[in-house]
Simulated scan of single mutants.
Amino acid sequence: MDKINQQKAFDEELAKTQQEIQEETLKHVGRELHDNVGQLLAFATMQLNAVEKVSDQTILPKVSNAQEALASSLTEVRALSKSLNNDVILNSGFDTAVSNEINRLNNSGLIEASIKITGKKVDFENNQDEIMLFRILQEFFSNTLKYASAERLDVEINYLDNVLVISAVDDGDGFELNNGHNGSGLINMKKRAELINAELELTSELDNFTRLMLKYPYRIN
């Protein structure tokens, strides 16, 4: 029994360490996007503004289109960099972070997304749990965009007395859960849920929908 408990503790510590490494990597990528890619896009925008002043009327529409594309790209990069940096997420709070992600999805033009928040907000006792829940949702959103060919994504966050209930459902292609569909994204979602003692349920129906249900038993301060 001691060996079993030791192995379980080792596996939990290993999973926690892996998640911490992933978070540090995401934070680094977020900073690089903001500091380097963001600055390059901002510089390119300034250069185009200078070109606009000396351009004749025949090419002004093309310059204007390029300016709009750069502006959209810069906005997207800045939004993405924030969603990857856990410090930014913690400062803004869980609800705001998820809402910002929904706005980012809508601004992408790839999907129509909505969010509904009900109940009296409860502060998390462990801030890292906020990050874990947000990353689970972010992974689900990413899978929806990459694989589901969905047109809609609806998210609900419901604060109950002792548990936070979160649902996210898309109207995409769906998949067979028991047909070897066990990609790294799903594995990461399940591992993160286990680390914070959250109940994760994924249901899907071919050519219809995929739904994520999360139940997180928070402790009230």
Rank of each mutant, 00 (worst) to 15 (best):
F10N: 07
D11H: 03
D11C: 03
E12R: 00
L14E: 10
K16L: 12
K16T: 09
K16Q: 10
K16I: 08
T17H: 03
T17K: 03
Q18R: 09
Q18P: 01
Q19E: 15
Q19P: 01
Q19M: 14
I21N: 06
I21W: 07
Q22T: 14
Q22R: 09
E23Y: 04
E24N: 13
T25Q: 11
K27A: 15
K27Q: 13
K27M: 13
H28K: 07
R31P: 00
R31F: 09
E32R: 05
L33F: 05
L33E: 11
L33N: 08
D35N: 15
N36M: 14
N36Y: 12
V37C: 05
G38H: 04
Q39E: 15
L40K: 11
L40G: 15
L40C: 15
L41G: 04
A42K: 12
F43C: 11
A44W: 01
T45S: 15
M46Q: 14
Q47W: 05
Q47S: 12
Q47M: 15
Q47K: 13
L48K: 11
L48W: 07
L48I: 14
N49W: 02
A50Y: 03
A50I: 05
V51T: 06
V51K: 03
E52N: 03
E52Q: 07
K53M: 07
K53G: 02
K53Q: 08
V54L: 06
S55M: 05
S55Y: 00
D56G: 10
T58D: 12
T58R: 05
I59Q: 00
I59T: 08
K62F: 06
K62R: 00
V63C: 05
V63G: 07
N65D: 12
N65S: 14
A66R: 04
A66M: 10
A66G: 09
